[in-house]
Amino acid sequence: MEAESQASHRSTLSKSRHSETELTDTQPTTPLEDFKSYSQLVHKIAQVMGLQVQLPTTSDSCKFFGHLNKSKPPQLKMAFIPSMLDREKEAWAKPSSNPLIPRRSDNLYKTHGDSMDFLTKHPLPNSVIVDANQNRGRSHSNTTPSNKEARKLDLIGRRHYSLASFSLRALNYLCAMEAYTRHILTFPAFMDLLPEVHRLKAQASYSEVLSLIDHQMITYLHLTDAASKQLTTAIHLRRHAWLRTANITEDARNRIEDSPFDGEGLFATSTDASLDNIQKIRKAAKSYTYQGGTSQPASRPTPQTWRRPYTPVHQRTQSRYRPQYHQSPYHRTAQPQRQRQQQQSVR
């Protein structure tokens, strides 16, 4: 009886220890709050893969503010992977003529949905600014500005938009893959049959894998934020290309460029209404301006000294009141002295 009671007591202790280890070891740390675990994980990955890591030089040994530094992001710097760096430098040869994403790679990350067309197609210009920017000789509408410099800016914006949409679609697939990886990594039931030492090691490895998946998901969220900002930057650049030749004020141009993007068109739906209000304000301002009525007294002319208008010499006429002096028929024109001497010698 005593042996059975001791065995039951040992089994209950092992179960309690197993439950405690599950609560402590299997629960991964939250990457959003614990930056220390993130730096430790990156340092461990770099050591295993043979990458150099630059550790932070500052220490958190301050008695007053040391506990606040634990909540800051780590200053860890990991070396760039050489193969990725070589692939990145392939696009440095011709920055202005780099081709877009290959069609084969683009087909791997397709998406569908009623409101997901902005990830597969460029938003079309949808404002009166487009009609005002077109050439008068063209009978059909064009999707690019008529100005040469604006057309170049619009092309650069389209390239940025294509790259941003591809990044967002690829990140969507990566997040789904990581979620599926976490789903299939369930704690196997046969782990309970292992000895306690091996079971604890397996639980530690399992917890580390879950923590790695969580950190990868956080990294994907950071990349999603960056790709979204790149997409909105492309929209801003294309709007600027269309508005750079518009006859509106700088304040109105900035407000239209910074209007929200709804995913349906290049410009927001409120753009035409804003332009209509601007036109009404201009007409009202012109109607209230002074048009030369009697309500405002005329300004006095500045005093100036009166001068006789200039008349060219060949247009001047001799006054009839001034006596005219005729030359005498005996008047001899002046001749050079040498010519007179020659005439006298001949005589």
Rank of each mutant, 00 (worst) to 15 (best):
T143E: 05
M116W: 08
R159I: 03
P125I: 02
L124M: 11
H140E: 12
L155R: 11
S139W: 08
N135F: 09
R136Y: 13
S139K: 10
A132I: 03
L124W: 08
S115Q: 15
G157T: 00
S141K: 04
E149F: 09
G137E: 09
P123G: 06
D154P: 00
L119N: 02
N135W: 07
N126H: 10
K121W: 03
V130K: 13
L119K: 05
V130H: 09
P145R: 06
G157Q: 00
A132F: 10
K121M: 03
D117T: 10
D117W: 09
S139F: 11
L124I: 14
F118G: 00
A164I: 02
P125F: 01
S139C: 00
L155Y: 08
S146V: 03
N135H: 12
P125H: 04
A164Y: 02
S165N: 15
S115T: 15
R151M: 12
I129L: 13
N133T: 12
Y161I: 06
P123H: 10
R136C: 06
N147L: 01
R151E: 13
P123D: 04
N133G: 13
D117A: 09
L124R: 14
R159N: 06
S127M: 07
A150Q: 11
N147Q: 05
D131G: 04
F118D: 00
T143Y: 04
Y161W: 14
S127T: 14
N135V: 06
L153N: 01
S115C: 09
H122Y: 12
S141R: 03
L155K: 14
P123Y: 11
T120P: 00
P123F: 08
I129V: 15
D117I: 04
R151A: 15
D154R: 02
Y161S: 07
K152Y: 08
A150F: 06
T120I: 10
S141H: 02
D114C: 07
M116R: 12
A132R: 14
R138G: 01
N126S: 15
L119V: 01
S162M: 13
E149D: 10
P125T: 03
K148F: 05
S162V: 14
A164W: 03
D114W: 15
T144N: 03
K121D: 05
T144S: 08
R159E: 02
N126A: 12
F118R: 04
P123T: 07
D131C: 02
D131Y: 10
K148C: 00
R138C: 00
E149V: 10
Q134T: 08
I129H: 03
D114P: 11
F118H: 08
N142S: 14
G137N: 11
L153Y: 02
